[in-house]
Nucleic acid binder design. Structure first.
Lengths: 212, 212, 212, 212
DNA sequence: TATGAATGAGAATTCATTCAT
DNA sequence: CATGAATGAATTCTCATTCAT
């Protein structure tokens, strides 16, 4: 029997998406059960299958969706300038904002690669690689222009990305440190890290206006 | 009936430990099954229970063991000097070496916190915190002594630790970059990051002699 | 919202009937799903319930319909003669023709008795029994008249019926053997079987004119 | 917890085999549930998986086992004579005995081909074909030697086999007709069918002594 | 006439765990 | 020290069926 009278597929779909992200982030994909997910959305477990064909496909879709969103957003908000220093600042701002705002999606996308079938993993990794390339590109340009001092821009991009993404594991919106302060500090750390002194030389303004 | 005549409990125990670490790193704790673990060690699933009381206790023990090892090792190899810059270089060397050598243990300890019961998680987190404090201490001392320039040493310690630990996700022993080179580059990145120029001012030699 | 504007209930009903017969013959009643059936007819599963009250009732109706058809057809095409030999020839012709033409219905009616509730099974078995009685009657008359030589006409009727019905499991319309030839051979086999020599003494013509 | 103290794998395995054959014959493979099967053997459903890797493999094994048994038994009990008539009588005796004795296995092997995956079906059909070839061989030899009169021995073999196998659908050990009588009648029917008069010319004795 | 959202029961299968031997 | 038979609870997933729209 159809329980909910005015039930709406699109609304349910979105509810499942959100609950799934939260649950996977909490417990891990393998540990999360469809019972639990269904319970949170107010459905019977079997009803979930109207919205995705298997637990695994659901994970893949969530991950691809998130990574695609990141790429699209960066396209949208990236500054028009070609100046590596300014672009780097914008990237730091963008990354920290998006990774604290969509903290659970990030967590899932980073932690659950193992749960993917090889073919799916390849697709996800490919998208992630494209995101990494954004930063690597900025660093490379900066090294060439003399703005940054780095022996190997790709390695540095790994280092900077790890540093930035790590914020998600400890930062707390309600905590002692505000997001503005957080971004400023990380901007300084990153600029120092890539060998671009002095600090505070890049305007935080643009990213503030357009960030997600 | 005992299968292997001269079978040795201690040897079996160690074999299980290693297989478990590898398996958990590969598949994740929840996804790994005791059947599979038993299979890799050449036992029947039930026989594993001679060596640990439950799947969950096994994980806790593996994690505590690893973190305790890290702390003990650092105690053993840390330089006697009080100079923050030298100590930081030694820490970078130590961390990267231990985290590439015992890569799977690191991975497990970082990824499987979720699978722990709250009480166990607290114990593990406490140990990890002590390790983080090592770095935070070095950075704090450096800021005080004027060797480093950082607004908030605790935050910087998170940043540096994330950066260093991230190495484990991409570094490949058989790859293009050697471990010596890797450490040198990360040393430079870290020193720049904490605002301690110029580069290459700290000797890599000591860590080579004493690393784990 | 009705999907197809000028959609026609009767047409849909017949489409379901045919698709159901084909599907049950392919997969078996239990293995067939209403989703699949609906898919083949271009409907949603729920829509099937406009046409029958349950999956089980559908099966019963299909089976009764088929058996009733067989009985009606035989009434229509049976020869007027009382000669057992001629009647037997006509029956062989009729049975093989109907059982190769409506092969799937036959298959379903023979294989899916198990899927019926006891009460339904009784109704179906009763109809089938009436069909078996047709042959048993012919054989009995033949034995009495001396045309056939059989110790027990009922047993012989089982034997002959099994033999004839078995055709459905191997005969292929597109194969090496034509239907005319097939019927001739089985006619000979049956006549020999019931001890009515010599062969080819009964004209195949009548059944050709009136067969279904 | 292991419930049954002196539980014995081999005994359990055989119990499952028998219960499975009976249940599949009763309800059909798709309709039978492992819950039910386990219940009949006094196990939990999951425990069945110690004995076969999936419901489908179980079916395949049961079918292959039965067909192989038939072939082996015929090898064992077939008469040494080359006389087609005698061999045919022996085959009728053997077939009816084995098909009434192992009635459920026969039923399963004949009805559940549909439930098999294509590759498995091929293996089963291949074995069944070898059994059919036994009869086709006898009929062919008889036609050549002039003992039988048949237009197409292969078609006749289908007819005879269907006739004989059909016994399983109605014969009842406790019924009006005894097995000796049954075999005699079918022997007569078959001999007449293949055009080998007069009746009772082949001794039933040998098969009686050695039948399964 | 048909859809589409949902149910609830039950399917096969897996798994950590137990314990007599 | 180790096996092997078994448990029992849970898991993902499927399916016939219902009914507001």
């Amino acid at each position: 029997m159809p329980r909910t009278a005015g039930s709406d597929g699109a609304r349910t779909h979105e509810a499942i998406r959100q609950a799934a992200i939260a649950l996977i982030a909490e417990r891990g994909f393998e540990a999360m059960t469809l019972r639990e997910l269904a319970g949170r959305v107010g459905l019977q477990p079997g009803s979930l299958y109207r919205y995705f064909p298997s637990k695994n496909r659901m994970l893949v879709e969530l991950m691809l969706e998130h990574l695609q969103f990141l790429l699209d957003e960066w396209q949208r908000v990236q500054p028009e300038t070609a100046d590596p220093r300014e672009r780097l600042c914008a990237f730091v701002d963008f990354h920290i904002r998006s990774h604290t705002l969509r903290r659970q999606e990030v967590f899932v996308a980073n932690m659950e690669l193992r749960s993917l079938a090889p073919a799916d993993r390849r697709r996800v990794v490919a998208l992630r690689r494209r995101y990494e390339d954004v930063l690597a590109g900025i660093l490379g340009a900066g090294v060439e222009s003399g703005a940054f001092h780095l022996p190997d821009p790709r390695i540095a991009s790994f280092a900077v990305l790890a540093m930035l993404t790590g914020v998600g594991t400890w930062f707390n919106d309600a905590g002692r440190i505000g997001k503005r302060d957080l971004i400023d500090q990380y901007t300084q750390l990153v600029l120092q890290c890539v060998g671009s002194a002095p600090v505070n030389a890049c305007a935080p303004a643009p990213s503030q206006r357009r960030s997600p």
